[in-house]
């Protein structure tokens, strides 16, 4: 069964359409990055999915039903929303114990979860003294309390230091690829998710602009090939004659569109031109993202 399903979701706040007819799914065993600039509607989508916000129309379902209709939600869905959702005067362990009591989970899960996120040492400390990174870990501990199979994380890397981000990446991949969980993680900082996600859904001004496997989106439709040769002008003429668009990048390097690397290699072989380098140019996600979300 599809883990997360968003179908024609629409939500307005006053005159502002925060989410405008968004549809996508997330399958078990994969990490999906939900990307978009600040204010694109990511958080509203995730909060609709968690029944914190009531959509105007459309559906946001987990395993085929609304969050508010799930009998034991903590055991099915783990969510991290913002890192500020703690009472500063309560200890980390007591915060989690309260969730265990309300969610009818064994109270000992609080200590176990703290250990899993590396906060066992500060279990008895008040959250008020925690750094942003520690709060993010505590929020993650709350998400794994009920050992759920679906994770919904809103900007979980905010406030984490580079080591924390590396740890988070490993943690999310472990959840999805080793434990078969479905992970939906939003971010506006693309480099954070690029090495973690399998699929991406890109949102801009409430509208879905692109979705698919990360590889497809990064490679793109008009992928270019970078070719290096000592006889660049000669090769350029030959490629143009064969119908490709050629751009001189440097003295000996060409960027070729319209032919794939195999066709270029064949052409060079026919002309007995030695190629010193041939490579598919991957536009990085950041660039794709800016192209897709700008001017909308």
């Amino acid at each position: 069964m599809t883990a997360i399903e968003i179908r024609n979701l629409v939500k307005s706040f006053g005159a502002v359409k925060a989410v405008d007819d968004v549809t996508f799914t997330v399958e078990a065993g994969s990490v999906t990055g939900y990307l978009g600039p600040n204010g694109a509607g990511k958080t509203t989508t995730l909060r609709s999915l968690l029944s914190l916000v009531t959509p105007d129309s459309g559906e946001a379902l987990i395993h085929g039903r609304r969050y508010r209709d799930i009998e034991a939600p903590l055991a099915e869905v783990g969510a991290v929303l913002e890192a500020t959702s703690f009472h500063p005067g309560r200890t980390a362990a007591n915060h989690l114990r309260g969730l265990c009591i309300a969610g009818r989970l064994p109270v000992k899960r609080a200590e176990e979860a703290l250990g899993q996120v590396g906060l066992a040492d500060v279990a008895g400390k008040r959250v008020g003294g925690f750094s942003l990174g520690m709060r993010q870990r505590l929020a993650l501990a709350g998400a794994i309390l009920g050992r759920p199979r679906v994770f919904i994380l809103d900007e979980p890397a905010n406030g984490l230091d580079p080591a924390g981000i590396e740890w988070l990446r490993g943690f999310l991949r472990h959840l999805a690829h080793d434990q078969g969980a479905a992970v939906l993680v939003s971010s506006h900082v693309l480099s954070e998710v690029e090495q973690t996600v399998d699929d991406v859904v890109i949102l801009a001004r409430g509208k879905l602009v692109r979705q698919g496997a990360l590889d497809e989106i990064v490679t793109g439709d008009d992928a270019s090939v970078r070719v290096r040769t000592a006889r660049a002008p000669e090769l350029a003429d030959a490629l143009e004659a064969a119908g490709a668009t050629v751009e001189r990048v440097t003295e000996d390097t060409l960027r070729v569109r319209g032919l794939d690397s195999e066709a270029i290699g064949q052409l060079a072989l026919d002309r007995r031109i030695v190629l010193t380098e041939v490579g598919q140019e991957r536009s990085d996600l950041q660039k794709v993202f800016l192209e897709l979300t700008e001017g909308r």
């Binding site: 968690l50 914190l52 939600p73 500020t84 309300a102």
Partner: peptide, 14 residues
């Protein structure tokens, strides 16, 4: 004030 209502309603959405 501390947005703990989010966690409260996630644990008990009704």
């Amino acid at each position: 004030r501390y947005q703990t209502v989010t966690g409260t309603f996630l644990a008990t959405p009704r």
